[in-house]
Design a protein around this nucleic acid. Structure first.
Lengths: 140, 140
DNA sequence: TAGTAATAAGATGTTATTTATCCTGTTTAT
DNA sequence: ATAAACAGGATAAATAACATCTTATTACTA
């Protein structure tokens, strides 16, 4: 019933990137240093974030990582979802699950509602807010 | 970000026990059969539930397991807490965690609120309700 | 009181996941 | 060219999850 370290690293990386001026790159080494994360492992995490399109990377000198999406439209739920796939707090909330309490398992119902509540909270604040950037930008 | 199987087994066992007439024992073998759970592993789960005082066990013939607490006062949150200890969806919500974003980490705050929301939902319905026992009993 | 039925508890084993690290490759600015 | 930076595969250690086996202990029953 815990997030993986990787999810937390991803959250912290996105938080760090959200504090950058728009469009600017930050090296993953710098992220690792600022957030005190294992560098190589963070690289893997960044790759995952890149694959789902939350960040962009640039190789070579002057390379690094930056958000591919405005921080105003990223939530913690998004970042966790990127790493762990669709969140399901119990197997019975995923597909193809066989339950002895069919057809109407009330446990299933309450777990489902609990999960919804969790996801709702995790989706409430954007990284723009989390990063403390209150100044408005012109939205395209 | 998932409950352990054991937590689910515990929930299902308590659910089964909640459907019994008050005070009656049910053998863990029978619980395992009804809920399609691995019997020996369920025994371990029952022991845990017994240690935290949610169920009582009786050995020997005519032995078995029964609730030690009225189903009206047990929630899924209680059962999960029995098996996994105090729920913390991220290490930073437990004690002794070092965070690079001190002193005021907003991620911490939102995770905390999400966890609260989760626990609130998990604590909303009692096993009396989950078991579908709507008839009122005289509460002592 | 012998026998059987049931849980308790410790030991052990297996598998999967998590959490990394290492090495080589590829890209890119200078 | 060269050095800097990410990409990605291989590997491995640590941990947790999941499960079973065996022996003990308890308690009813005949």
């Amino acid at each position: 019933m815990q997030l993986t370290r990787q999810s937390e690293y991803a959250i912290r990386a996105v938080l760090e990137l959200s504090m950058l001026p728009e469009g600017e790159f930050m090296q993953s080494r710098a992220i690792a240093a600022r957030q005190e994360l294992p560098e190589q492992f963070l690289n893997k995490t960044v790759q995952i974030l890149a694959r789902v399109g939350l960040v962009e990377t640039r190789r070579g000198m002057q390379g690094g990582v930056r958000l591919a999406v405005r921080p105003e439209s990223i939530t913690i739920a998004d970042v966790i979802g990127a790493g762990e796939g669709k969140i399901a707090i119990n197997p019975c909330l995923s597909g193809g699950y066989h339950c002895a309490n069919r057809p109407s398992c009330r446990v299933h119902g309450i777990l489902n509602r609990a999960q919804e509540a969790l996801l709702t909270e995790l989706g409430k604040e954007t990284f723009a807010e989390l990063a403390g950037e209150d100044e408005k930008r012109i939205t395209s």
